[in-house]
Write a protein that binds this DNA or RNA. Structure first.
Lengths: 338, 338
DNA sequence: TGAAGGACGTTATACGTAAAACTTCAGCGG
DNA sequence: CCGCTGAAGTTTTACGTATAACGTCCTTCA
């Protein structure tokens, strides 16, 4: 501390406490039992407090060879869902002394060649959510421990995967609607090529196909209220018998479907039932409240982080998809008698 | 690279290219003009590519004395708003070679004593949004360059501040409602002690107070649809003349107000007008669409990051609040004739 | 009494990088 | 033919930390 402006180092603390730098490291690193007397330890802590000492993380990371920091790659941050994933991951991380850096992958953020350019932090591992395959291989090339969220287990190049049981969610939605008596169903799908949406389409088609006399029409739309409104309105005003239920790939699309239905002068659920998927705040804000599949985003993030910790420690990540739950609200009802 | 598992270092690259480690650093750091021949430079680049070399950020940060990483402290991540702030900040950061680490401050995340424990990353600066004063002083104690978002300029202890012009937004809301003829107004306020909400209350009271014959009733609620529903329903069913308009501190509260109004068998905007603040996706999902104040969250984040960059470079941050815009939609109309 | 250990430290070193300071050598003008 | 300059590198050092390896004493017990 020759001139007062620089941040104090452990050596400054040592000098102030009249001990060696090693002693400071020992005391502050809580490894001093039987190596330093209680009195000296207290003197060191005192000096550190007075100088406002904070260890230089860069130096520590260099010395230790790891950073206790992981990267969370998400497709976007525009809904609460991935915010929840982050929150869950960060919570578990913090419990284990880790930090989480976020990288929202798509357009916009900088020279997005690869996540690591933007995330300046040195990383111990990566959690990647709903990632495209090319970006995946870029990460794999880095040899970093990797956990994939919401991704095709078959195509993950051996990386650990953690998934929500979307298939079961769609199964529950289909069963619910079929039980109510719906036979003509419109699938309002997201226009994004991604495993998580493929699963929805596949499972829905399979379940509907099991029941004789059913029909399934699929239209896709960008994931936005406006986009969904347009697509749904077009599909609903086509000639021929009108669907009695709309299954949406997520809640935002469902909100658009609501507006399309209303614009055509129809009512939910009397004329048309609507279901979503996510259970965002949106789902209970709209009227009637939306029947949807609740995804526990935070648990998802927690499990993702736990899996990554397992990989880092050489353990086997916990297997098994995360259960989801159909939440029946006011947007679904039996279809009118024909 | 004695054994193949470890990550290659610049020394490994040097050996592979038949040069010294310094030459590698020069070439890869793009500082080799006039120091290394083009042929040698190419050989180095080639070797780096083949080994999959990535510089060790911890070592670089230690050497350079800075990390090009800043911390963004947000109160929560539960709405798109702060997600937008992050996105904007991260975009500008990336353009300048910086990374952004997120710290959602409140409950939940780890042993939240101070942001830095969780954010393992070594930091060059901090952007703190809507922060409580005690946490602020903890950060100030660290002597880190700091920019405050959405905070009282007077109480920021000399740190730079960047604010949305909330005052003007509330002014526009009040003018809009008063112009329509509303005289009995209910203020549905957030039950959080924070400068940003104080400003709303103060400005609304001032504007309403200017017009003779007006009344303003304030109730506060937790920022959730459920909480707002309860508070608004109670306030609306009190005896005495009913308010003709509800001004909400944000869009989520407005969504709760919608439900309260509907539960009482009233209609929006015929019986009661409602306004929000934020312009989340929620605002156009509900029916009728919400008249609200549009906050440009991304621009907010960008300006915050720009201000921090200015501080880091010793420049004066750009002054002036960020303009906001009243978006008039279907939730406001003139009050019924009494 | 003397050797063994514990208590309480210190000294020295390595992590991987960036860059300042140094070396070597060819070419060239005077 | 000498000294100078510039090109093309190399050697060395420092960043701040954690910890292995190494001293001292002082006590204790055979």
């Amino acid at each position: 501390m020759a001139h007062g402006s620089a941040r104090p180092t452990s050596r400054d603390v040592a000098q102030a406490a009249g001990v060696s730098q090693a002693a400071v490291s020992l005391v502050l690193g809580d490894k001093w039992r039987g190596r330093v007397s209680e009195a000296t330890a207290e003197r060191v802590r005192q000096a550190a407090r007075e100088l406002g000492y904070r260890p230089n993380l860069a130096a520590r990371n260099l010395r230790l060879g790891h950073t206790r920091t992981v990267l969370l790659v998400v497709p976007a941050l525009t809904t609460e869902f991935f915010a929840g994933v982050y929150t869950g991951a960060a919570r578990v991380a913090a419990q284990h002394g880790f930090g989480v850096v976020l990288y929202p992958s798509p357009e916009g953020i900088g020279p997005a060649r690869d996540p690591f350019a933007s995330a300046q932090a040195a990383l111990d591992g990566v959690i990647a959510s709903s990632m495209a395959a090319d970006a995946l291989t870029a990460i794999r090339g880095d040899q970093l421990p990797l956990v994939m969220l919401d991704s095709d287990p078959a195509g993950s190049l051996g990386a650990a995967t953690v998934n929500l049981d979307i298939t079961d969610g769609v199964r529950q939605v289909a069963a619910h609607l079929l039980n109510l008596g719906h036979r003509r169903i419109l699938h309002l799908a997201a226009d994004i090529a991604s495993w998580t949406f493929d699963v929805r389409a596949r499972e829905l088609a399979a379940r509907i196909g099991e029941v004789p006399g059913t029909s399934l029409l699929t239209v896709s739309a960008p994931i936005s209220i406006e986009g969904a409104l347009t697509a749904a309105a077009t599909a609903l005003s086509a000639k021929g018998p009108r669907p009695t239920a709309i299954v949406c790939d997520d809640d935002k699309l469902a909100a658009g479907a609501y507006k399309a239905v209303r614009r055509l002068g129809l009512r939910i659920p009397d004329d048309i039932s609507v279901t979503g998927l996510d259970d965002l705040a949106l789902a209970t804000a709209i009227d009637p409240e939306l029947t949807t599949v609740r995804l526990d985003a935070e648990l998802f993030g927690e499990r993702g982080m736990q899996a990554l910790l397992a990989v880092l420690e050489g353990r086997e990540p916990e297997a098994g998809d995360i259960p989801v739950e159909l939440v029946v609200r006011g947007s679904t009802a039996p279809p009118r008698a024909p």
